[in-house]
């Protein structure tokens, strides 16, 4: 039995704006197991990044605030930890890489400096040991000539190299969980292929769990063990990757899968989901997808569908199509 590493339980993260409250993460629950790659998929503004930031407790406050729920990491509720304990967890147990590798690196410090600093701080290594470990890490992320890179500045490296360095920094303290927020979106496809390969490699070597946030279903298919689909702040479907791609339940998931042109499978016309993502301010208590859904029923407009499994234990979704009760009360 694989152990649970992280468990989100009814997480609620809200942002207060002058126009109203944005429920960026609205009652989200899911679990990341040890050694597993979990992908969170969704379009921009669906709350996938905010979920990750809530886990790291890096939500900018104000305007943002975690207003409810629990996040268990190895059995401890992170939301109840002190700032100091949380910062220790951020450094040692969970680390994160971002979409834009340039802005996450300090332009005036050498790469070596930036890798060894957390090593000296969190692992209490001396300068020499830290350098040795840093060079090991640079080699681990597949960069040749690590000594040379150690003394370079971020602007001397290409985007792909910088993302490798970010991964090296993230791995420096042997984290149990690596959060990757759209790590390849800013990169070219051939470089993306390299980075994805690297992440798969690392997961195998170090048995790190990965929470991969992406909008690209192609990346999901290649990387994920388990997939969580989010829409307008809510989890609308979750399943193991094969199950999700073979038998998607929610109309939104189905639409996403059909909307992307696939190479060597030319279609006359692309399927497209009409309309657009709803304005996230003060959403009503209904299915947020109802006005774009081709199967929309009366109940969808007034009541939120429950999120639960329909027949298969490991496949959950939130859609009235799979419910018995459909009467508007």
């Amino acid at each position: 039995m694989v152990k649970d590493l992280v468990e989100f339980r009814n997480l609620e993260t809200h942002f207060k704006t002058t126009a109203g409250t944005v429920k960026a993460v609205d009652n989200v629950s899911f679990t990341i197991r040890e050694g597993e790659t979990l992908c969170v998929v969704g379009e921009s503004g669906c709350g996938k990044s905010v979920t990750a930031m809530s886990l790291m407790q890096l939500i900018e406050s104000p305007p943002g605030k975690i207003v409810g729920g629990e996040i268990f990491f190895e059995g401890r509720d992170l939301l109840k930890l002190s700032k100091k304990d949380m910062s220790r967890i951020r450094g040692n147990e969970i680390s994160m890489i971002f979409q834009e590798p340039m802005s996450s690196l300090n332009p005036v410090l050498t790469i070596g400096n930036q890798i060894s600093e957390p090593l000296m701080l969190h692992m209490l290594l001396d300068r020499k040991a830290a350098k040795k470990r840093a060079i090991e890490l640079i080699t681990l992320v597949g960069i040749s000539r690590p000594e040379k890179i150690f003394d370079s500045y971020p602007h001397e490296l290409s985007g792909g190299m910088r993302q490798r360095i970010m991964i090296a920094i993230a791995l420096s303290c042997d984290p149990k969980l690596l959060i990757a927020d759209e790590p390849t979106t800013a990169l070219d496809v051939t470089i993306q292929a390299q980075i994805l390969d690297l992440m798969r490699d690392i997961k195998q070597k170090l048995n790190t769990s990965i929470m991969l946030i992406t909008h690209d279903l192609g990346v999901v298919a290649e990387m994920a063990d388990y997939v969580v689909v989010m829409y307008a702040g809510k989890v609308i479907e979750e399943a193991p990757v094969l199950e999700l791609f073979q038998d998607p339940q929610h109309p939104y998931t189905k639409g996403l899968l059909k909307a992307k042109p696939i190479i060597n499978q030319k279609q006359e016309r692309l399927y497209s989901i009409p309309g657009q993502v709803p304005n996230p301010i003060d959403l009503e208590d209904n299915c947020h997808f109802h006005d774009r859904c081709e199967f929309c029923m009366d109940i969808c407009k007034v009541k939120q569908p429950p999120f639960r499994s329909h027949g298969k234990d490991n496949h959950k979704s939130a859609c009235w199509l799979y419910e018995e009760e459909r009467e508007v009360l």
Partner: peptide, 24 residues
Amino acid sequence: ALMSAIPIPDPTYKRDRIVLQGDI
């Protein structure tokens, strides 16, 4: 290489990917 680098949204799809070495 460009064609093989595109992730295909099908987890059962297996192929021999040509991963290009190095940067542009």
